[in-house]
Simulated assay, not measured.
Amino acid sequence: MDSSEFKSVKREISGTVNDIFDDFEESNSRLPTMEEFQVIIADAASHYLGPIDQNAVDGINANLERQRIREKLLWDAAAEQEVAIRKRRDNDG
């Protein structure tokens, strides 16, 4: 994955993570706990990544490694968004 692809994926995922926080806060009048966020992002990640056997052409080890890389991108974007939203909330509050 080159840097432009990484930036594109990160931007897309960051938007999704931001939407998760906004939707949760709007529905619950608070930010999600880490456990709640993990459940929500795991569902979003499985939707984004697709089933593990979807790309079985390369073999299972290649697919697992590709999934780990993509999941790391998701979690990095999620952590970045969580920090930004909590800082913004602290500054506003």
Rank of each mutant, 00 (worst) to 15 (best):
F24C: 02
E35N: 14
N63M: 14
S29I: 10
L31I: 06
V57N: 00
A56N: 08
I60C: 03
P51Y: 01
E26M: 02
W75S: 02
E36C: 07
N55D: 10
R70E: 15
A78F: 03
N63V: 15
R30Y: 02
D76G: 02
R70M: 14
L49V: 05
I52D: 00
G50D: 04
A62V: 14
S46F: 06
G59N: 04
Q67F: 09
S29V: 07
A79G: 15
V57L: 04
D19Q: 15
I40K: 09
V39R: 12
R66T: 13
T33A: 04
R68S: 14
A44D: 04
L49C: 09
E80G: 06
E35I: 10
L73R: 13
D58L: 12
D58K: 01
L49D: 01
P51C: 00
E25K: 06
L73C: 07
D58Y: 07
A62S: 13
A42N: 13
L49N: 05
L31C: 06
F24N: 04
D19L: 14
N63Q: 14
F21Y: 11
A45P: 04
E36M: 06
L64D: 01
D43M: 09
N61R: 09
L74N: 03
A56K: 12
P51A: 06
R68Q: 12
G59E: 03
S46T: 07
E25A: 14
E35A: 15
V57W: 03
F37Q: 04
R68M: 13
Y48K: 10
E26Q: 06
E35R: 10
A44E: 14
D23W: 02
N63I: 11
K72T: 15
D22E: 07
S46H: 11
I69S: 09
D76E: 13
K72Y: 12
L74C: 14
E71R: 07
A44R: 12
R66I: 05
S46Q: 08
N61L: 15
A45K: 05
A42S: 15
A78R: 00
I41A: 09
D23E: 09
E25G: 01
R68C: 06
W75L: 11
D19I: 07
I69E: 10
L49S: 04
E71W: 12
E65F: 13
I20F: 03
D43P: 01
M34E: 08
N55M: 05
P51W: 02
S27M: 10
K72M: 10
I41Y: 09
E25P: 01
S46I: 01
H47P: 01
D43G: 08
P32H: 03
N55A: 11
E65S: 13
